[in-house]
Write a protein that binds this DNA or RNA. Structure first.
Lengths: 105, 105
DNA sequence: TGATAATATGTCATATCTGACATATCTTTA
DNA sequence: TAAAGATATGTCAGATATGACATATTATCA
């Protein structure tokens, strides 16, 4: 069982700017599930990239994006959509089933 | 084993306008996985909504959108993002694990 | 150490998605 | 059948995500 303050620190470390604890506690189930989803898939993308021994610059070329956006994808930055994370995973050859597994993990 | 022309008809029925067979055959694995994902989750959203005996208008209110967009979500219309479909599922109380299951199905 | 590669952060113009609306096409039910 | 309810389709102004760039920070290694 992780506490809320631990969760907050984890999120902040990952780049989520959370104004106050009250605001954090105010996150609906929906919002936190959504953030969790982005973090999981972002982490998975990084894992996949490093396994393939690619740099962010190289991955950026593959998905027709830029190094900075790849960095944001992997971190689950608030400015990126689940959409782009998932399309990036697909571009690396991840199957839908594997994506499902990553979400469940 | 479904044929490509069957797949094409299914997609067209669901609202995907595909110019030519050649164009269809040109769909990369990535693109078709992405479309498949949208269709699966859209179908799941509709299933959930009808199980809850909600109309599209009622669901629209819940997710703070409009009836027409709900219709497009459920169909996997090209104009909607995976992002919005997933956030709608979450708004209906779907867990990440259930989303994963829907993707794997 | 310092030089170089890799990754992170911040910003912005443009592309894409979104809610809202109008209206069309089913579906039901009386 | 016709009317009412539900869903689908098309469009668009405004909102949000995107690639690109500059620059900062963090590894790696000679």
């Amino acid at each position: 069982m992780t506490t809320n303050s631990q969760k907050q620190k984890n999120l902040e470390k990952k780049g989520w700017k959370i104004g106050s604890t009250a605001e954090f506690l105010g996150l609906s189930e929906e919002e936190s599930s959504y953030i969790e989803l982005k973090l999981k898939l972002g982490t998975n993308l990084r894992k996949l990239r490093t396994e393939k021994k690619l740099t962010q610059v190289e991955l950026a070329k593959i998905i027709k994006s830029s190094q900075s956006r790849v960095a944001k994808l992997e971190i689950g930055d608030p400015s990126v959509s689940l959409d782009l994370i998932i399309r990036s995973l697909l571009a690396l050859g991840t199957s839908n089933k594997e994506i499902a597994r990553a979400i469940s993990s």
